[in-house]
Design a protein around this nucleic acid. Structure first.
Length: 421
RNA sequence: GGAAAGUUGGCCGAGUGGUUGAAGGCGCCAGUCUUGAAAACUGGAUUAGUGAAAGCUAACUGGGGUUCGAAUCCCUAACUUUCCGCCA
């Protein structure tokens, strides 16, 4: 959420900054509502001040055993007026809140301007795609011949966009998860969190999934909870309504969760294999940083995510997303894309973002600076990495002519095997 | 799922419907004292909204109600604790 005061005072600048983002937002409407709110507020506060002072007088009169009935009658009338104004105010504020919560973040100044993914800028490329001396297969075909994924039965027990992992498939997925977590815990200095997979509405609003993107989430019918679309939601919300100590910053968490996404609007896309699922595994990195360092922290967080691909020997590239391709809450995002032979292109495997104070303002997460003042923290997160897509990338990139897959060295102790056959 | 009790400031904890933004204690910050520290003493300190400012308004888990006036009474939701039931 943007600072309402800032938006009202810099209306044109904010409009211009958001003009390169996808989607439309009506800032004029917000400015009008904000003015209306101030007008009502002034009047109702004036009335309340009058009532408060009269209330003191009534108490005095009663203490002196004098008649207060005239004043009480007067205050009753004023109370009715206040009630009407309060209701009006609440309605305006609710409307205003909904609208300001639906305004995307302002892109950071260095972010490339563009309308869609064609405007993204590659910042580095690591490793070279293998040149196969045979026709490489897609992971869904290899998965079938190796008997490690079972999509027909997944469809039977659940439906489309679910996967049953079996044997080496299940072991590979689990080995990758553990390898990622251990790397981030022991080498990169993150504290592991294992959060709930269901969260309440406030948490989803805090990180920006709600109110605008409710259709993308799975809601639980019984209790109104949501299945987490990413560990970002529970982990960032850990510190909602808290003031962090300066000495604790940056706070660095990593977390494995299953992630659940409705994938509304992506019918027909990536229908085969592990790439786009209603349920997938992900190890997430989350940071809380002081504003002065948050862009350095974004660089190191991105490097931490990349370190997994390097250790596995998977070729990848990192791109800076342009204004039109960035997510709603982000001020700057790097996508890390792994080479996927079946797609014959790089495919997103991680998205690392600095949200600046956009999420912190929604969640009221602050820190106390050297002067003892509380200020909003900056929040960051990135996949470290998407596990299912890593599984797919390993199977495809390290496949052999005979249909077997060579397990990367880094995973062998986790797998208890060097070859999938 | 049933029953009961509870939720007050960074923490503990008082609070008969009428100067209670909230006693007291602990902790915190500054000062005095001290070679330095501790102790003691003195003073200070919530957050948000609004306003040029003085100030005003709001906040005692959230929401609603009663009242001229609610931390205090009523309803409701969430959470916590205990007992019962069920259960990995």
């Amino acid at each position: 959420m943007l600072d309402l005061k800032y938006v009202c005072e810099n209306l044109d600048a904010v409009k211009k900054a958001l003009s390169n983002r996808s989607g439309k937002t009506d800032l004029d409407e917000i400015a009008v509502l904000a003015q209306k709110r101030r007008d009502i507020l002034k009047e109702v506060e004036k009335d309340k001040a009058a009532r408060n002072s009269a209330t003191g007088d009534i108490a005095k009169l009663k203490a002196e055993k004098k008649d207060a009935s005239a004043l009480i009658a007067e205050m009753k009338a004023l109370g009715d007026k206040i009630k009407v104004l309060d209701e009006e105010l609440n309605a305006v504020e609710a409307d205003l809140k909904l609208k300001i919560l639906s305004v995307p973040n302002i892109p950071s100044s260095g972010v490339p301007v563009g309308r869609d993914e064609t405007g993204n800028v590659e910042v580095r490329r690591v490793g070279k795609p293998a040149e196969f001396k045979f026709a490489p297969k897609a992971h869904w075909d290899l998965g079938e011949s190796l008997n490690i994924f079972d999509w027909p039965r997944a469809a039977k027990i659940s439906g489309a966009r679910f996967t049953v992992y079996k044997g080496f498939g299940a072991r590979l997925e689990r080995a990758i998860m553990n390898f990622m977590l251990d790397t981030h815990i022991f080498k990169n200095g993150y504290t592991e969190i294992f959060p709930p997979f269901m969260v309440n509405r406030d948490s989803m609003t805090g990180t920006g999934q709600l109110p605008k993107f409710e259709e993308d989430a799975f809601a639980v019918k019984n209790n109104g909870f949501f299945l987490v679309p990413t560990a970002e939601v529970p982990v960032t919300n850990l510190h909602r309504d808290e003031v962090l100590a300066l000495s604790d910053l940056p706070v660095k968490y990593c977390a494995y969760t299953a992630c659940f996404r409705a994938e509304a609007g992506s019918a027909g896309r990536d229908t085969r294999g592990l790439i786009r699922q209603h349920q997938f595994n992900k190890v997430e990195l989350v940071k809380f940083a002081r504003p002065e360092n948050s862009y350095d922290e974004l660089e190191s967080l991105t490097a931490d995510a990349e370190s997994i691909l390097k250790a596995l020997g998977l070729p990848f590239r990192t791109v800076a997303l342009c204004t039109g391709d960035m997510g709603f809450s982000s001020a700057k995002t790097y996508d890390i894309e792994v080479w996927m032979p079946s797609y014959n292109r790089y495919v997103e495997i991680s998205s690392c973002s600095n949200f600046e104070d956009f999420q912190a303002r929604r969640m009221n997460i602050k820190f106390r600076d050297e002067d003892g003042k509380t200020r909003l923290v900056h929040t960051l997160n990135g996949s470290g990495l998407a596990v299912g897509r890593t599984t797919a990338a390993i199977i495809e990139n390290f496949q052999n002519a005979d249909g077997t897959v060579t397990v990367p060295d880094a995973l062998r102790t986790y797998m208890g095997a060097g070859m999938i056959k």
